[in-house]
Amino acid sequence: MTLYSIIFYVLAVIILVSTVLAIIQRFLINAVVYLILSFLATGLLFYLLGAPFLAVLEVIIYAGAIMVLFLFIVMTLPIEQPERRIMETLGQGLPVVILSVISFFIAGILIFEAPGSKISLSTGMATPAAFGQFVFKTYWFPVEIASFLLLIGLVGALYLGRRESKKGSEDRP
């Protein structure tokens, strides 16, 4: 039980508790704020697992950009009645819970029966310079595809979000 494993378990508890609290909230604002906490803790976990550049990206993109976008949309949309209960009927939620528990146990058995599952990870660190050189040397083509994906996302969001013209465009977005 080293210091690093204690840090890992504390971060895991923070992540799980804040995620559970996020998905059972009835009001969207509370859910988004809990989720920001969860993503910040995930960023710290990335740092612990030796990915400092991805930790920074997690804080900037997930906790910064995506969740702030969610907050904007939640504040822009008109307030409507929150869901009365999280799971409307027992018949709706029960199959999901049962299947989740079954798949969780199967995954746990598979993980801990695998050879070498008792060996702890040693600490390591990929510096941002080495990571950037690796990505742009080995994965330069997927980087281009990702940039096109982001461009398409931008164009699609602009197209869907534009104001409707006055007449004759009822059936077109």
Binding site: T2, Y4, S5, F8, Y9, A12, I15, L16, T19, V20, A22, I23, L28, L48, L49, E83, I86, M87, E88, Q92, G93, V96, V97, S100, S103, F104, A107, G108, I111, F112, A114, S117, K118, I119, S120, L121, S122, T123
Partner: peptide, 28 residues
């Protein structure tokens, strides 16, 4: 030494199942 890789994978699986639970049961 950090924890074994199985613990990281288990945490990821629990998070994934929580996300699936959220997107299946919520109506918003």
């Amino acid at each position: 030494m950090i924890v074994p890789y199985g613990n990281v994978l288990l945490l990821a699986i629990i998070l994934f199942l929580l996300g699936a639970l959220c997107s299946v049961t919520r109506r918003n």
